[in-house]
């Protein structure tokens, strides 16, 4: 089982290829969209590359959930409701949800996708495979 650091290095290389960013930019707490400039279509590319580079299977919506704001019970006045935050917790188990609990604005959801989240996700997949 590879260490966190070993997985991080491989995730870093994956993101350098997928997003055309410099290795130094891909820090553990960098956000995919805000810091590394990922767009929605890049998420699909990242999934393909992680599957290939780590030999894992990533079911649709497991790493990057879809329709996170679809249910009107989860959102009110541009902010996540308690139910919405709970939903995020269950669908993004490796994200640091404390950030969104401080500021539950919908436009902050993208900040939950960090390099660390990817590393933790891959780590959990490798440990169960």
């Amino acid at each position: 089982m590879p260490t966190y650091e070993q997985i991080f290095e491989k995730v870093q290389a994956t993101l350098v290829d997928a997003l055309g960013v410099d290795e130094e930019e891909v820090t553990s707490n960098a956000t995919l969209q805000g810091d590394l400039g990922a767009e929605s279509i890049d998420f699909l590319d990242i999934v393909f590359r992680l599957e290939r580079n780590f030999g894992i299977k990533i079911p649709r919506g497991e790493l990057f959930p879809e329709n996170l704001t679809a249910d009107p019970e989860w959102i009110a006045d541009g902010k996540l409701t308690t139910k919405g935050v709970d939903e995020l917790k269950s669908r993004l188990p490796f994200a640091d949800i404390s950030k969104i609990e401080e500021d539950p604005s919908v436009d902050k959801i993208g900040d939950l996708y960090t390099v660390d989240m990817l590393v933790q996700y891959v780590q959990s997949k490798l440990s169960t495979s």
Binding site: L44, D45, V47, F48, E51, R52, R60
Partner: peptide
């Protein structure tokens, strides 16, 4: 090289 429900490479 890759094909899944969301797309392909």
């Amino acid at each position: 090289t890759d094909l899944r429900s969301e797309g392909a490479v």
